[in-house]
Amino acid sequence: MEVFVAIMVGALVTASVYLMLARNVLRFLFGLVLLSNAANLVIFAAGGLTPEAPPLIAPGANAPPEGVANALPQALVLTAIVIGFGLFAFALTLVYRGYQNLGTLDTDEMRLAEPVEAEKT
């Protein structure tokens, strides 16, 4: 099971790197979303993946049965997803505002903060 998730993480990272190499900021951002999902899957897989064995404690017992997945990474993933959601919502708004203000999504043309020497004079 972990092997499949590992391959999936690899595929996600490949796709996200491909997207992030684009000049368009929006594509870059989509690449970033994929990358953050890959990171979440890494944490998820770190807790162990066991089909049909939920990490639940039966009534009356003190510990879950042997061989269940570790539940902590799942809680961590949840936190990471929530934080990621907030950050990307912000980043998307920023890119949109940036597009309105700068009139471009091409990173090569975003030179306002770092002007090229020749343009300055």
């Binding site: 900021v25 953050s36 890494v42 944490i43 980043a91």
Partner: peptide, 29 residues
């Protein structure tokens, strides 16, 4: 100029947090 700077700051810092997060996952595993 702040939007221009902001986009660069935000995107590059997001990559760093994602790397940090993956590192946490691997370390926990």
């Amino acid at each position: 100029v702040q939007f221009d700077a902001g986009i660069k700051y935000v995107t590059l810092n997001l990559i760093s947090t994602i790397l940090f997060l993956s590192g946490i996952g691997l370390l926990y595993g």
